[in-house]
Structures are given as C-alpha cells and as structure tokens.
C-alpha cells in the first residue's frame, strides 16, 4: 500500500515535471522501494524490537495495531476514496503484434517478478546475510551464540520484505489502475496464504503457492462466481493448514520440546 502510494505520488510529481514515461516508471519504482524499505525498518524498530522476548501474543497484537495505524494514516493524509493510478508501463512497439494475449505491462510484470525471485533466491542461498537469515529463522538463540547479529538480520528482513512489497504494490497498481488505502490488507493476507500454501521459508514454495492461489481464485471466479473469489482464497488457506500445515513444498517436521 505504501509502495503503491509512493509510486503514485512520485509519478504524479514527475509527470507534472514532464519526464518521459519510461524514466518515470524506473524512478517511481526505485523511490517506492526505498521508501517502503525505510518504513519497514521503522516499523520493526517501533512495533517489534521492543517486544523481542515478550510472550508470543504481544508482537502479533502490536503488528495488527501497526497495520491499522498505517492504513488510517494513509487514509487521513491522502484520501479514503479510490485514486486512479496512472499507467506507468508504456506499450512497447515490438509487442504490438502480440498485444491481444500479452500486453507490455503483463510482460513487464512477469519479467520483473521472475528476476526478483531469482535475485532473492541467490541472496538467501549464497550471501553471508542470507545464511545469517536462515540461521536466525531456525534458531534465534543458537544464531546469536555463533555470532550472528540477530537484531541486524531481523532489521534486514524487514527492509527487504517491505521493499519487495513495494515492487508488488507499484506493479499491481499500474496493472489494475486504481488504489486506495485498504489494498494492502487483503494483499497481506493473500501473501501470507501463498507463503503458507507453498511452505514457509521456501522461496520456490512461495512462488508455487502464489501461482496456485492465483489460479484457484481465477478459476473459482470464472466457473463459480466472481463474488466469492476471496472466499475461495480463504477456504484454500484453511484446507491447507488442516491437511498439510507444512505447505506443498515444506517438510513435515516433528516438534521438539
């Protein structure tokens, strides 16, 4: 949501300044990502860091509080209504023959998401920070003992996660063409559903989960009724959690005490 709004604002200012379309897209995307990342960093400092080591309910509740706070902040500072989002992605000429089944914006979205996925996988697998992240996810205390700066790692995950959310926000906003302050809420739940569906902690899993979720929604909307699109998404989530809590690609792990 923050990403989409930042994109909108930057794009609006730049359009007023009269820059060419492609440079607007790139600049808006970069600024949206940077700002969202900064927001993620700040949110973590305020609502999560002071609660490290608190009972497990505490960070959850403060996270919900933060989500309500941010939504209402955007609503009050900008507008409670839907805002038309400019088409940031220009139609490229070589795409003209295929436009009927693949518009330039679709291509751009596919290419961007695939490159982000690859980059993220490489980052998690091969960099020092990625390794530290995996260690922290497995066992925070052990990671601390072997010298991982856990606070820094968690900050970093928030920065990266928020930045990626901004990419998604700008892309989906320019695809759909309108935004409002509440778009992030459903997107957040669906992102969680996709991650759980694929198996928490696995990037290919999250990709697969996202695809399965998207297909389920589209087919359900097409064959049953588009009114119940979101109902199917939630039902899928509930079913997955009941029958395969580890997700499609996750490993069932025995619980240790």
């Amino acid at each position: 949501m923050i990403g989409a709004f930042m994109g909108l604002i930057v794009a609006g200012v730049l359009t007023a300044l009269g820059l060419p379309a492609l440079s607007i897209l790139v600049i808006a995307l970069i600024i949206a990502v940077l700002y969202s990342a900064a927001y993620g960093y700040t949110v973590e400092k305020i609502a999560y860091k002071p609660l490290r080591g608190a009972p497990r309910l505490a960070p959850l509740i403060s996270a919900i509080g933060m989500s309500i706070l941010l939504q209402n902040y955007i609503m009050l500072a900008q507008t409670p209504d839907f805002l038309p989002f400019p088409r940031l992605i220009p139609d490229l000429e070589f795409m003209a023959p295929y436009e009927n089944f693949l518009a330039t914006s679709d291509l751009f979205i596919i290419v961007t998401s695939i490159s982000v996925m690859v980059a993220l996988t490489l980052f998690i697998k091969f960099t020092r920070m990625g390794k530290a992240m995996r260690a922290t996810a497995q066992n925070r205390k052990m990671a601390m003992l072997v010298g991982v700066n856990v606070d820094q790692v968690i900050s970093m995950t928030f920065i990266i996660g928020s930045g990626l959310a901004a990419v998604g926000g700008v892309l989906i906003a320019s695809h759909i063409g309108q935004i409002n302050f509440a778009i992030g809420f459903l997107a957040g739940i669906k992102a969680f559903t996709a991650a759980v569906l694929g198996g928490i902690g696995s990037i290919p899993g999250a990709v697969l989960g996202g695809l399965v979720l998207g297909w389920t929604e589209s087919f359900a909307a097409g064959y049953v009724s588009s009114d119940y699109e979101d109902v199917f998404a939630f039902c899928l989530l509930v079913l997955i959690l009941i029958f395969r809590p580890a997700g499609l690609l996750g490993k069932q792990r025995a619980q240790k005490v």
Partner: peptide, 13 residues
C-alpha cells in the same frame, strides 16, 4: 482507528 492502532502498539510495548 488511528488512535486504536497506536493504543494497541503502545500497550503491548
């Protein structure tokens, strides 16, 4: 709602 959200965070912290 803004205040509610802030309350939830502050109370938890």
């Amino acid at each position: 709602m803004l205040i509610f959200g802030a309350t939830m965070i502050l109370v938890m912290v």
